[in-house]
Write a protein that binds this DNA or RNA. Structure first.
Lengths: 149, 149
DNA sequence: TATTGTTATACTCTATAACTATA
DNA sequence: TATAGTTATAGAGTATAACAATA
């Protein structure tokens, strides 16, 4: 079971925190981030970086602004995430011919190859949680989380 | 509905991200954090600070280490969170008589009074989400999230 | 030796604002 | 005047390591 179950057994009064969705959401996200970091150790890829690579793979030529909207990251921060992946030669950023303000993003050959390894790690990470939490619960979780902004 | 629903309508391929619980969990947590910040604007209280105040109120005399365990925060970081609340005269930190290594944490009178106002804000914040997401969904969400560590 | 808490430090994520270059 | 992206900067959260005081 989860952490809150263990703690109540120790006589500490959680003061309703274990019924507070924000507290639980934060804890669950940190669990996911920590587990992601374990599975992606020594790749230097963070959850945000992985999302970007995945999105560029599916939408070659997309613009940073597209990723901002999907990922909920502001453009200034997206620039730095893209800088990092670009500096590591995983993606290529070129000026858009039609609108020279915009940029076109694409995976490099190295980026595409790297992504395959990352997909395998991600599958293992998800299998990890399916084992721990239950695949059916994870599905119901996703269904509910899609109602958030 | 949620953000992912809107985005799919724009022709962007999310590449399975909207079925990835980690991506959805991150987005939902940011939604919760952003909404919390709106409701707690100008109080200077963050989600972590609110949790600490709540826990000290329910467990007067508890030690920083107790809070670390409940909240999943390491002790070095807890020190700084407590420093902040202490500097603002909301809590009092005294040396534990029986074990002089430990500290005893208590709300000050000002802290207790402040907490009442914060509880009202938190109730409004939760009502906000119950309206947006549905109280029954939030309940089911909590039930699932308690399985995480 | 082990434990409680503190200090120092660094990195990631997030946010606001000011800026460049295009349109 | 508006938009796409960049640069600068700051604050919050998280993490590791080294340390002090006490047990």
């Amino acid at each position: 079971m989860g952490r809150t179950e263990d703690l109540k057994a120790k006589g500490l009064d959680l003061g309703g925190l274990d019924g507070t969705f924000g507290f639980l959401l934060h804890a669950a996200w940190r669990d996911a981030a920590r587990t992601f970091a374990e599975h992606f150790a020594e790749t230097g890829i963070t959850p945000l970086g992985y999302s970007i690579l995945l999105l560029i793979a599916r939408n070659p030529g997309c613009a940073p602004g597209d990723l901002c909207e999907i990922m909920g990251v502001t453009s200034n921060n997206m620039t730095r995430l893209i800088d990092d992946l670009s500096r590591r030669s995983l993606i290529e950023r070129t000026v858009h011919a039609a609108d020279r303000r915009a940029r076109r993003l694409q995976l490099t050959a190295q980026g595409a190859a790297t992504l395959e390894g990352l997909r395998a790690r991600h599958a293992a990470y998800e299998a990890d949680f399916n084992d721990r939490i239950g695949a059916e619960r994870i599905d119901r979780l996703c269904e509910i989380l899609r109602h958030f902004d």
